[in-house]
Structures are given as structure tokens and as C-alpha cells.
Design a protein around this nucleic acid. Structure first.
Lengths: 195, 195
DNA sequence: CATTTAACTGACCCATTGGTCAATATTTGA
DNA sequence: TCAAATATTGACCAATGGGTCAGTTAAATG
């Protein structure tokens, strides 16, 4: 396959560099210069491959999202029962390689721009729609129809809230605690049918 | 009382102006010039009252937090039972005047800076400690000791998650829906003792 | 090999912005 | 009333950073 063209390689490197710089510097501090240096290139090349700064970080967000999506999908493919599907979604969202303060910092910086950048808002919308769709596909088999929406929203909010906590107080919230939280919610909210 | 000195008035005006500009412009866009103009003053005066931009926004965050704290405390003072205390905390956190997209946008911008500004991190820590303390003072009467921590964290995460949702998708989440979510969680998680 | 195309660099431009400062207006209060 | 303190302004500075561009190197392709 010819997707390994040099241009695609560079683009990917730069998207990842952008996301990594974002983790430590925030949006304002994530300079084109810093991104370039971090990727071992010059500033000029960044703007050769991306229209402008917004474009770069929009694509960086896309990439980070795709990565998370793939992790969840991989688990979903292995899931057999609705319960397992729920588990897959949740554990995918708390995988070690993602559930890290610095990653959360990058997401926070991106989310903070959403209100002023329609492109980022669009991505955010997609993310939420997918989460909701995934959750519903499991919940409809576990709950009365009229409760599914509420529970899907609650699970989403819980995940987001725990991520936020991780970002705001780096110490004090481990992956295990977060997963325990989610489990606690599910056991109290979803009737147990011969799990 | 001599708290009505002109300097205190100005400071308050500028803190609020800063927070309001933050709502629409984000941290990077919230220029000293814009804040000054928004308060009907000149840029010079802002730096006359605040050491620098960080100082200004740190105090803006303090003020916004104090406002929220007061709202919750007012409700807490009226609460008689543990259930009412829980209700007070939750409804205080979703009061109409606070639970607005633009307000959430400002908070998002501040939170995104937390990882790089120890001062903001300190405030964030205080906020979380207060929330936790308030919740525990009610939960210890409603749950076995060893479950209180988990439920307090879950409630906090839920509130944060719902706020985040409001900020990321301005339409589609009303105050009533958010409150219904919280109530749904409580009814399923906390045993009902002759409420 | 030669020529077209793409990758890449570094210098440059210009607008923005945080911050300083000297000068002016206003208030205070003795 | 008058001086000391405080409030307020606007000009100015230095730095930064996004974006453009002309030109150079390297790759591809026929």
C-alpha cells in the first residue's frame, strides 16, 4: 500500500508531536516552533503540511480520538454479552496508556477551545455520539427502554468526571479507583441477570 | 466598614470583567486590553491593581469559586436532614445563574491552565476538598462508613461530568436534565430511609 | 541523466500582547 | 487650602509567534 508516502509519515509525526507538546504546554504554549523542534523538524515544514495552527491541532485531536476509538472497538469486538460490551467500553476508556494526567491535560486544552473552534466542536460531537451509540447498544438489552438514555448519559458523565479529576489532581486517583467507581455505579444501577 | 475603598471596588470590577471576558475568549484570547475595555478602563489600571495576568485570573477564579461556595452554603444552612444537605449541595451546584454554557467555558479555560499554574491548582484543591467535606457530612448519616468515600467521589464526578457536557454541547442538556440525573443516581445508590 | 515534483529550511514580516513608566488627574485628610 | 497619596492614562518597549516566501536540497520519474 502506498499510504506510507513520506508526506503521510511526516503528517503523522507532526500530529503526534503536536499532541505531546500540548500535554505539557497547553494550547497557548504549544508553539509551532516547539512542535517542530519536538518532531525534529523546522517550523516551516509544519506549515507546509498543515494550513495553520488550528488545522494542526484539529488533526491532532482527530488522531488522539481515533486511537481511543480503536482501543474501545478492539475490546468491543471481543465482547459477547451486553454486560461484556459495557465492560469493554468502560475499560477501553480507562486503559493505562490513555488514562494518564498528561494525556488528560492535552484533552483539557483541546476541550477548552471547543467553544471557539467549530471544527473541534464537530469532533467532540462525534466522540459523544459514538460513546452514546456504543453504550445504547449494550444498555437496551439490560434496561427498560425509557431508562437507557439516562443511564448512558450518567456513564458518560461519570467517565468524563473521573478523567477531569485525574487531570486536576494528578495524584490521588488511580486507574483502579476509577474502574471501581464505574463498577460500583453499574452494580447499583443495572439489575443483575445471571451475570 | 472600609472595604468599600475605591481600590477594592476596582479590583472586584476587574476580577469580574476578567471572568466575563474569559467566558467568550478563552485564556489566550482574554487580553489585558480586552479585560480593561470590558470594565471600561485602560490597560494600565489592570496592572496597577494586579501584579500580572496570572494574578488577575487567579483572583478571578477565586471570586467565581467564592460565589458558588456561597450559593451552596446558603442552601446548606437551610437544610435540616442529611437528605436535605445532599440536595442543597447538588442544587447549589446547578443553580440557573451558574449552570450556563458560557460560565462553564470560563471554568474550562481555567481548569486547562491548572497543570501549569500551581496557584490555580491550589484553588482547585480547595474546591474539591470543600465539595468532599460537604458531601461526607451528609453521607455519613446515610451510608455505611466504608461506602461514603466512593459515593462522594461519584457524586463529584457526576457533577463535573454534567458540567463538562454542558460546556461541550451547549444545546441538549438542561438544568432539569442534569438534576434528574443526579436524583436518579441518588435514588439507586442511597437506601431510602423514610425520606 | 535530466527534469519535474516534492520536501525542507531559515530569514523575514507584522500584528499582538504583557509589562514598564513617566506624566497627569483625582481624592484624601491634616 | 494644600500637600501627600492614590488613581488613571497612554505612550512605549521588547518579545513572541503565526504565517509568508524565496530559494535550496532531495526524490521521483520518464
Amino acid at each position: 500500500m502506498k499510504l506510507t508516502k513520506i508526506s503521510e509519515i511526516r503528517r503523522k509525526e507532526l500530529r503526534q508531536a503536536a499532541f505531546e507538546v500540548l500535554q505539557q504546554e497547553g494550547m497557548a504554549g504549544a508553539t509551532l516552533e516547539k512542535v517542530a523542534t519536538h518532531a525534529g523538524a523546522s517550523k516551516g515544514i509544519v506549515l507546509h503540511y498543515f494550513r495553520n495552527k488550528q488545522d494542526l491541532f484539529e488533526q491532532a485531536m482527530r488522531e488522539a480520538n481515533a486511537s481511543l476509538r480503536d482501543a474501545v472497538n478492539a475490546r468491543l469486538n471481543r465482547a459477547r454479552t451486553p454486560h461484556e460490551r459495557l465492560e469493554a467500553i468502560i475499560e477501553g476508556n480507562f486503559e493505562e496508556r490513555f488514562f494518564r494526567p498528561s494525556i488528560c491535560h492535552a484533552w483539557l486544552s483541546l476541550c477548552a477551545e471547543v467553544p471557539r473552534e467549530p471544527q473541534l466542536a464537530r469532533i467532540q460531537k462525534v466522540i459523544h455520539a459514538r460513546m452514546r451509540s456504543n453504550l445504547m447498544s449494550a444498555l437496551v438489552h439490560l434496561l427498560p427502554r425509557n431508562e437507557c438514555n439516562a443511564v448512558a448519559l450518567a456513564i458518560t458523565a461519570l467517565i468524563d468526571g473521573l478523567w477531569l479529576r485525574l487531570g486536576l489532581q494528578s495524584e490521588g486517583l488511580t486507574r483502579e479507583m476509577a474502574l471501581a467507581q464505574m463498577k460500583d455505579y453499574l452494580t447499583h444501577r443495572i439489575p443483575r441477570t445471571g451475570d
